[in-house]
């Protein structure tokens, strides 16, 4: 695909602060209408990359195209066409929700109706509330509404669900999926694996300023895990020998970690029946689950996301 056809395209992006390489050669393209996620722990360089794409920072080297345009030549055209929710969205504290959305609407030649935006993020009944009196989650939803005032064709969301309660998070996922259904391109960052799996057509796993893997969530999981995970609590007092567990039929690997046993099995029925037959104690808290992006991240980087 030609450079001009990508909604967002970056090539060999680099940015360093002193000795720290915040972004160390990132390249990817987001096709129109795609939901693309940058997934990685805090400090991986996701925010720096997003800010360069938005034109808030300049890269030390590399190319950025948004809708085929560069910030150097077409910053205002890019700004008119994109929407952004930054990690901190600055707002006037003595403004109401309605006034804040109206203010940002006035910066664009065309804007969505304020009432519609408040409905979309579920803030209609807070229309007259002052920004300084909003909860963290309400503020975050207002930031999302502001990101959508110009009906953008590309939306960049930096950690959009951080600080939201589970219900508001679900609502935002639905919103992102409805944006996708209407053909909007979404570029988001997150450190929630589940979020990336639920929303993203493709994810780039970012670690220490580099993309270590990039594909659809399902493809990544399949590539790294042909096995299904069987977890249970090690019976208290009983000797658990991982070597014995590894010799059970179908088991590719067995991990004993702080009282929790995880078997990775390619043949769950066979593994389960021999495991249950061999067990001299009741196996408590048993869970059989698919491998997740969390497992992929752990396997690629050797570190857990939350470290």
């Amino acid at each position: 695909m030609d450079v001009l056809n990508w909604a967002v395209w970056v090539k060999d992006l680099k940015k360093r602060y002193g000795d720290v390489k915040a972004v160390d050669g990132i390249s990817f393209g987001v096709s129109p209408g795609e939901v693309f996620g940058m997934l990685g722990p805090n400090g991986a360089g996701k925010t720096t990359a997003i800010e360069i794409i938005l034109g808030l920072r300049t890269a030390d080297s590399g190319d950025v195209r948004v809708l085929g345009m560069t910030h150097a030549q077409n910053h205002r055209e890019i700004a008119s066409a994109i929407g952004a929710q930054l990690q901190t969205t600055g707002m006037y504290p003595a403004h109401t929700v309605r006034e804040m959305i109206q203010l940002f609407s006035d910066f664009y030649s065309e804007a969505a109706p304020v009432d519609e935006l408040m409905d979309v993020v579920g803030l209609r009944e807070k229309a007259g509330a002052l920004v300084k009196n909003l909860s963290g989650g309400q503020r975050q939803r207002l930031a999302i509404a502001i990101a959508l005032v110009n009906r953008p064709s590309v939306v960049c969301l930096d950690e959009p669900t951080t600080g939201l309660d589970p219900q508001a998070r679900r609502a935002l996922w639905d919103l992102i999926l409805s944006l996708k259904a209407s053909g909007t391109t979404v570029l988001l960052t997150t450190h929630y694996m589940e979020e990336a799996e639920q929303l993203c057509d493709r994810v780039a796993i970012v670690d220490q300023g580099r993309i270590v893997e990039m594909d659809s969530p399902a493809a990544l999981i399949n590539r790294y895990f042909k096995h299904i995970a069987i977890e249970f609590e090690a019976p208290p007092g009983a000797e658990v020998d991982p070597d014995v567990l590894r010799s059970l039929p179908g088991v590719g690997n067995a991990v004993l970690d702080s009282g929790k046993v995880t078997l990775y099995s390619s043949d769950v029925p066979a593994t389960m029946s021999s495991l249950l037959g061999a067990a001299s104690h009741a196996l408590r808290h048993m869970v059989v689950r698919q491998a997740t992006l969390e497992d992929v991240f752990l396997k690629i980087t050797g570190r857990s996301m939350r470290q």
Binding site: G55, R76, G90, M91, Y92, F107
Partner: peptide, 17 residues
């Protein structure tokens, strides 16, 4: 205050000059 609240920074992502 507004600089610390990152208000100008957010506005920099709009067509406002």
């Amino acid at each position: 205050e507004q600089r610390e609240q990152k208000i100008f920074r957010r506005m920099a992502v709009t067509p406002l000059s």
